[in-house]
Design a protein around this nucleic acid. Structure first.
Lengths: 144, 144
DNA sequence: CAGTATCCAGCAGGATACTG
DNA sequence: CAGTATCCTGCTGGATACTG
């Protein structure tokens, strides 16, 4: 029963949830291919990698993380962290003090993602030039 | 000068281009990190992987590809292919006949991407259960 | 067959203001 | 400090109709 499936009837808004985290809407599950693309989509969004990279060197508190990444909005940092936490990639540790201290760190699962990501990262770096040239060629061709 | 930078002044729409391909809008280039996230974003979009997978077994014509992937709209297949072609990952071969035959295939560069992608794919498959459990836990916790 | 053109809904993500 | 709440824009992607 993992990952509850929430079926929205038309007109339903599901805004009961206490906050802004994107709804865990999910189609019945088409198996492997869906799982793979899920990960790619998550990792391909605007901030996930930056956050994982930043936490790669060690735990960080919310604002430290925000300064590290810089240019990320408070809202997106919170959302990204919540999703990562939900998926078990990031651990959130609250020290109940005033003012509060919240420390984020990678879980073992989160750390295990670093390597696969690095592999594509390497590809991206290696092939940068080739892609750039291909684009230049393509753009030159149709703009003539 | 690779990858022309198009600066849009406010009010500019750049709809000169002959078709629907998303504009090659680009910030000055923040180096490595941008390149990596570029690739992740592309690969993380809804159809890119499916297309690359489908072409992995050999060249395919437009409608064959469409049938193979199924559920993809004509518009998105065209767009995805154009982007992939522009980046030099896919080759487009037109046989000027009536009706036209257009064959798509992976370039060597495109094939070189299959491996890195497979690595994350493997991770996704391996960790599926763990992620699902983490989500179930998280969802159970806050819905109490 | 292999596209283009158009329209439109929904979500990602930014800006800003407020709070325990 | 570490968030929430609200509002708003623009892009992604689907549906549909038309064409060389």
């Amino acid at each position: 029963m993992a990952t509850q499936t929430i079926i929205a009837q038309e007109g339903t808004f599901l805004s009961e949830g206490h906050t802004d985290v994107p709804a865990p809407l999910q189609v019945p599950d088409h198996g492997a291919c869906t799982a793979v693309n899920d990960v790619l989509a998550r990792v391909g969004d605007k901030w996930t990698i930056r956050v994982i990279m930043a936490l790669g060197t060690g735990p960080l508190r919310f604002n430290a993380l925000k300064r590290e990444i810089d240019a990320i909005s408070q809202r997106m940092l919170t959302r990204t962290l919540r999703v990562l936490e939900r998926d078990g990639l990031v651990r959130r540790l609250v020290e109940p003090s005033v003012p509060p201290r919240v420390e984020y760190s990678l879980t073992p699962l989160g750390r295990s993602l670093q390597e696969p990501v690095t592999v594509i990262g390497q590809w991206a770096m290696d092939k940068r030039g080739e892609v750039a040239r291909a684009r230049a060629d393509y753009d030159a061709r149709d703009e003539g």
